[in-house]
Amino acid sequence: MERIDVVSVLILDEEQKRVLVVQNEELWSLPGGKREEAESLREAAIRETKEETGYDVEVERVVQITERMSSDHVVFFTFRGRIVGGKMATEDPEIQRIEWKNLNEAERLMPWYGDLLTLWNGPSVYRYEQGGGHTIRELTTEEDFQSAFPLIRQLRNDLSREKYAELLHAMRKEGYRLFGLERDGEWMALAGAGIRHNFYNGRHLFVYDLVTDSHQRSKGYGAMLLTHLEAWARANGCEKVELTSGVQRKDAHRFYERKMGYNRTGWVFRKEL
């Protein structure tokens, strides 16, 4: 199955509540297209937007990742972006029109993006389109963090709720991010990670915590969450993902090596992005 990365850029005029969109044949979409070989996701987003709209853009964070499994494995990355130069024009012969659409019209023309204003302002969202029912998102509220504690405790069983809150507050100041896979309002899996730098890995994502609910294992939730982390790391300029796993976790070691393609050195597992 071939892996294909597709990028798009959400450009919002916040004052007039308008979104920049393009028409390709009968389909309206955000500007974007397929990532080329040896091209980063950010480079692809900037290039495609310039070719389709004529505008020079600065891309910021990823606001949505959608993974689709069919005849190919396609991952769609939507960046938040802003115009920094250029003028409206197109170099792409397939683009028929470039327009600013108000939010309601844009959402009607592109329902797969959902609420565009929420997408613009909110944390990044992951969607998996085969089977449905799963959402991966970053935890950002106190309610989120409190609801995650019982699952975190399955991994760190000596952790009290008070110590969890104390450490989480300190860790978040140091760049710790917590992501979760949610189904029907319940956390199926959680992963805590942060971007770090060192001489041997460069800029990389280090995964501190990765846990799937004990009643939900062997359903692919851990793999989906780790795939999301890898995509998030790639979109944020990381060169590798690294994690450690205790010597007693033999099943986890096989999962990282065989299914997820990580290279192992002792208890350390590393993957190039």
Rank of each mutant, 00 (worst) to 15 (best):
Y113Q: 10
G114F: 06
G122H: 06
P123S: 05
S124R: 07
V125K: 11
V125E: 15
Y126T: 12
R127W: 01
Y128G: 13
Y128F: 15
E129H: 08
G131N: 11
T135C: 11
I136P: 05
I136S: 09
E138M: 13
E138F: 01
T141S: 14
T141C: 01
T141F: 05
E142C: 01
E142G: 13
F145P: 01
F145Y: 15
F145A: 09
S147I: 03
F149G: 01
P150Q: 06
P150W: 06
L151T: 02
L151S: 07
R153S: 14
R156T: 04
N157D: 15
N157K: 11
S160Y: 04
Y164C: 08
Y164Q: 04
A165M: 10
E166S: 15
H169P: 00
M171P: 00
M171G: 07
K173S: 04
E174Y: 08
Y176Q: 12
Y176W: 10
R177S: 10
E182Y: 04
E182Q: 09
G185V: 12
G185E: 08
E186M: 12
W187P: 03
M188Y: 04
G194H: 07
R196P: 00
N198S: 08
N198W: 01
F199R: 05
Y200A: 12
N201H: 15
G202R: 04
R203D: 06
L205F: 02
V207G: 03
V207H: 01
Y208R: 05
D209M: 02
S214M: 06
H215L: 14
H215E: 15
S218L: 09
Y221P: 01
Y221E: 04
G222Y: 05
A223H: 10
M224F: 02
L225N: 05
L225K: 02
T227W: 07
H228T: 15
H228G: 13
L229T: 06
L229N: 01
A235W: 00
N236H: 15
K240F: 14
K240N: 06
T244A: 11
S245L: 04
